[in-house]
């Protein structure tokens, strides 16, 4: 078939792209990176839910007891998703959940910036002076979101526990 000239990628280029994206080692790297990152950021919040609740309240979207409930559950969602991604179990669910969380976080940060709130992110550490929010944070979140989407939509998950379990032939 004759292609109309221009910037459209050729079939070869598309094939190459798909090959890179479905490369099992690239997938493994992305999976472990995102997984370990979420495990690491969850630790501080699990250790001190009250400090995390204050970080949440600073955004002035949820405050008081609902913020405390969020601070109780959210870090554990991050930890479990991180572990699941790193080990390769429940990959669809964990990448979906992490992606959704990142979307919510991004909107929260953007709305805080638009409201001129000068607050700390509460993303990595709960120290009030560190990690102030800024537009860079949104860029950071979008990169992580792309990684989560990549994992969610990819098919090939070699080296994952899921795949390992599935590799046993079914007993008859």
């Amino acid at each position: 078939m004759e292609r109309v000239a221009g910037k459209k990628p050729s079939d070869n280029e598309v094939d190459a792209m798909i090959r890179i994206l479905s490369n099992e080692y690239n997938l493994l790297t992305a999976r472990v990176f995102l997984g370990v990152l979420f495990v690491v950021i969850s630790i501080d919040k699990i250790a001190d839910p009250a400090a995390f609740a204050r970080s949440i309240s600073d955004y002035r979207i949820v405050t008081g007891t609902p913020a405390m409930v969020l601070a109780t559950v959210l870090p554990w969602v991050e930890l479990l998703c991180g572990l699941a991604l790193a080990f390769g179990i429940l990959l669809r669910g964990s990448s979906l959940l992490i992606g959704s969380l990142l979307i919510v976080f991004t909107f929260a940060v953007a709305s805080a910036l638009l409201r001129d709130l000068d607050i700390s992110c509460g993303c990595f550490t709960q120290a009030p002076s560190a990690d102030r929010i800024g537009w860079l944070k949104i860029g950071e979140n979008i990169v992580l979101l792309a990684l989560a989407a990549y994992l969610f939509f990819s098919r090939n998950h070699r080296f994952s526990l899921d795949e390992y379990v599935r590799s046993f032939p079914p007993r008859s």
């Binding site: 109780t72 559950v73 959210l74 870090p75 554990w76 969602v77 930890l79 479990l80 998703c81 699941a84 429940l90 990959l91 669809r92 669910g93 964990s94 990448s95 979906l96 959940l97 959704s100 969610f152």
Partner: peptide, 19 residues
């Protein structure tokens, strides 16, 4: 479907662990 089901499992266990 798989994603939502698994996400629900994770979120539920996270709530239990958290509380």
């Amino acid at each position: 479907h798989a994603g939502l089901r698994e996400a629900a499992i994770i979120a539920l266990s996270a709530s239990v662990f958290g509380f």
